[in-house]
Every structure is written in structure tokens, then in C-alpha cells.
Simulated assay, not measured.
Amino acid sequence: MDVVVGRVAKAHGISGELAVDVRTDSPETRFAPGSVLVAKLRDGTSRNLTVAAARNHSGRLLVRFDEVLTRDVAEVLRGTLLFGSTDDLPPTGDPDEFYDHQLEGLVAELTDGTRVGTVREIVHGPGGELLVIEREAGGEALVPFVREIVPAVDVPGGRVVLDPPEGLLDAD
């Protein structure tokens, strides 16, 4: 299974370096030198890119790929999604720790079994993680991913159980 690990924001400098918005909780593994990512281009084609180097810069990663040697080539990649395989991820070793791709797509339901929606993505913010729930009734809800509000995660069963405080899931 392939999952999005980053999105190319823009070219950086003149030597083909790219500013990448990270979409993985293990960037040190995904963007390690020698790692191969699949770039899905806007024209529908794909190509493999091998990480040559990566470094943090202003909240993004600056990544150099072996196959991208000039700014012109880097500019073509603007907006491209970068995918990595889930097959090479080690087990978390903690039953209360999950990879983002394990949570995305799970049904979100209340403790009484009422379906609220589906987990669309996980946002990693400075205050902690948020589940972005695509609501059954339309729109989205941001749910703090803490045990008090998400008391159960059942990956094999395909669901997360929510016990939200009053007002958290109210429509805008």
C-alpha cells in the first residue's frame, strides 16, 4: 500500500532542491538518503525519485533527489504528491500508537454506535494530533486525538470510538 508522505511546495535555490510539506510522522525514515519515493505528477504519470539529502528549513523539509539536478526540473514537480510504501515501516511496538495510514478511512462513531463520519486525515499540530472527520451530514469536524475523547481505536474492526464533550461535533 502506498501512502502520501509529502507534497512538493516549490523549488528552492538553483540546484534542484525542493521544499516539501511533510505528510508523515516518520520523516527521518521516509526522507533518509537512499529512500525511493514515487512522485505522482499532475499529468497522471509517475516516476521514482531517490532521496540524496534532506534537511529541515522553516517548517518544511528541503529535499534533494538524485534525479532532480536543476531548478527547471524542480519547478515541474511543484504540487506533486510523494508516496512511500507502508510495507517498509516497522511495527510501532505500542498498542496505543498508530501510523496515520492506519487511521485514515476508519469509521468514526459515538460510544452508542451512532455513525459520525469517516477519518479523512490526521493533522499533526503543535498542540497534538487532530482527527479530521468527514461528517456524514456534510462538512468536517476536527477531533483532538486524546484518550478522553477517542477512548477506543479498533483498526481491525475499521472504527474509532468518540466520546466528545458537548458542542465538539456541532455543525458550524
Rank of each mutant, 00 (worst) to 15 (best):
D2E: 04
D2A: 06
V5Y: 04
V5G: 04
G6V: 14
R7K: 08
R7L: 12
V8A: 05
A9Q: 13
A9W: 02
A9T: 13
K10A: 03
A11C: 02
H12S: 06
H12T: 11
G13Q: 13
G13R: 09
I14R: 01
I14W: 03
E17C: 00
E17G: 02
L18D: 07
L18T: 03
A19N: 01
V20P: 03
V22R: 00
V22A: 00
D25W: 05
S26I: 01
G34K: 07
S35P: 05
L37V: 07
A39K: 02
G44P: 15
T45P: 13
T45Q: 04
S46I: 02
S46P: 11
R47V: 01
V51F: 12
A52F: 15
A54D: 09
A54I: 15
R55I: 05
N56Y: 05
N56W: 11
H57T: 07
R60P: 01
R60E: 06
L62E: 12
V63D: 02
F65Q: 00
F65V: 01
F65C: 00
E67K: 13
E67S: 03
V68Q: 00
T70D: 04
R71A: 04
V73S: 05
V73P: 00
E75F: 02
V76K: 04
L77F: 04
T80M: 11
L81Q: 09
F83M: 04
F83D: 05
G84R: 09
S85E: 02
D87H: 12
D88R: 10
G93K: 06
G93Q: 11
D96Y: 08
E97L: 07
E97R: 09
D100S: 07
Q102W: 15
G105Y: 12
A108F: 14
E109F: 14
L110A: 07
D112F: 03
D112W: 06
T114S: 13
R115A: 04
V116K: 10
V119E: 00
R120Q: 07
I122E: 07
V123W: 08
V123L: 15
G127V: 07
G127D: 10
G127S: 10
G127K: 09
E129L: 13
L130Y: 06
L131A: 03
I133M: 11
I133V: 13
I133F: 02
E134T: 10
E134M: 03
E134D: 11
A137G: 01
G138H: 10
E140F: 03
L142H: 02
P144A: 02
P144L: 15
R147S: 12
R147L: 04
I149Y: 08
I149W: 15
I149V: 03
V153G: 01
D154F: 02
V155E: 11
V155Q: 04
P156D: 05
G158Q: 08
R159W: 12
L162N: 11
L162Q: 10
L162V: 06
D163A: 11
P165S: 07
P165K: 13
P165Q: 09
G167D: 02
A171C: 05
A171W: 03
